[in-house]
């Protein structure tokens, strides 16, 4: 009887076999995520600098207070927000345009789609290096063509006025295709009937887009926005390669500032507090937007 039960369990015939399948992975993942989170929290309530281990002390929530009043942290928050909003807006508009065109008859469509995919599957560090060379004030291709027009070679990444713009261009280059392909998938599955009805009613192209296409594409737009937002929020590879947060702190984002605190200033406790704050932001966004968007079919 007992043997029979075990056999049913192992051959997955039993109702509760899922535990056997699910629990090993779950416990491993839980362990790998909970332990560091708890440990980070433990660090975040301490004044702990790796260079001064003897001065380690508990400060409770002081680090958190310092984080939310730290002007450099707030600056990084602002940079992250600016970068996220600008990149996202450009990627959505351009992506929508590209997706609509791709849905039409295009010569060599298969090849075009592969070419357009290249930026987003490239290794991000390599993307950063290519553009760093492009922007180089002396030998860069972009600086050359700009100077051919204006007569003066700009130092795009070296000026705090233009460095963030330079990084936004790179992100738009790298990720607009992603947004475009998400929207293209949605456009190709749009129903035909409403369009025929609207055509009979004599709606203009702009009206059709505004009142029919846009609402129908809304779920796909939301998915694109959420996934891009998540990436932009934690973005730092390209900054590390291209500007190192500079000049000054003009391109320093939240992730990069936390990185600097932990690995350059060795303020482990402070960096951990910053990480916990970021985690709360991500969890909040995940639970509000993410739940609505991604689990519709499940409920």
């Amino acid at each position: 009887m007992n043997k029979e039960k075990i056999k049913r369990l192992v051959t997955l015939e039993s109702e509760s076999s899922w535990k056997l399948l699910f629990y090993p992975g779950r416990w491993i993942l839980l362990l790998l995520t909970m332990v560091p989170t708890i440990y980070a929290f433990w660090l975040s309530i301490q004044n702990y600098n790796l260079a001064k281990p003897t001065q380690r002390s508990f400060v409770l929530l002081r680090n958190y207070l310092n984080v939310v009043t730290d002007s450099r942290f707030l600056g990084a928050l602002g940079t992250t927000a600016k970068f996220t909003v600008c990149s996202l807006a450009l990627e959505l508009v351009l992506g929508m345009l590209i997706a609509h065109c791709l849905a039409k008859r295009i010569y060599g469509k298969e090849i075009v789609q592969i070419i357009i995919m290249l930026p987003m599957i490239m290794t991000p560090v390599v993307v950063g290096l290519i553009w760093k060379m492009f922007y180089d004030a002396e030998f860069g291709v972009i600086s050359y063509y700009i100077s051919a027009v204006t007569g003066k070679a700009p130092n795009i990444l070296g000026e705090s006025a233009s460095s963030l713009l330079g990084l936004i261009v790179v992100d738009v280059w790298e990720w607009t295709p992603y947004v475009a392909l998400i929207l293209l998938a949605a456009i190709q599955s749009l129903p035909m009937e409403p369009y025929e009805a609207v055509k009979v009613d004599g709606a203009s192209a702009v009206q059709t887009f505004r009142y029919l296409t846009l609402p129908l594409l809304q779920p796909a737009i939301a998915v694109a926005v959420m996934f891009r937002f998540m990436d932009l929020f934690k973005w730092m590879d390209t900054i590390y390669i291209m500007t190192g947060g500079g000049p000054g702190t003009s391109t320093e984002t939240l992730s990069y500032y936390a990185y600097m605190n932990n690995f350059k200033f060795l303020e482990v406790g402070y960096a951990a507090a910053m990480c916990i704050v970021m985690l709360l932001i991500v969890l909040f966004i995940c639970n509000t937007i993410g739940k609505k968007l991604l689990l519709k079919e499940e409920s």
Binding site: L29, T37, F233, A258, N262, V268, L279, N287, L294
Partner: peptide
């Protein structure tokens, strides 16, 4: 649903969140 959301949140966490505690 809760399990799927939990899985998603581990994927969404910024890498720096993993880097700081794991480094120590």
């Amino acid at each position: 649903q809760g399990i799927m959301m939990w899985l998603l949140s581990t994927k969404m966490a910024p890498a720096i969140l993993i880097a700081v505690p794991y480094y120590m």
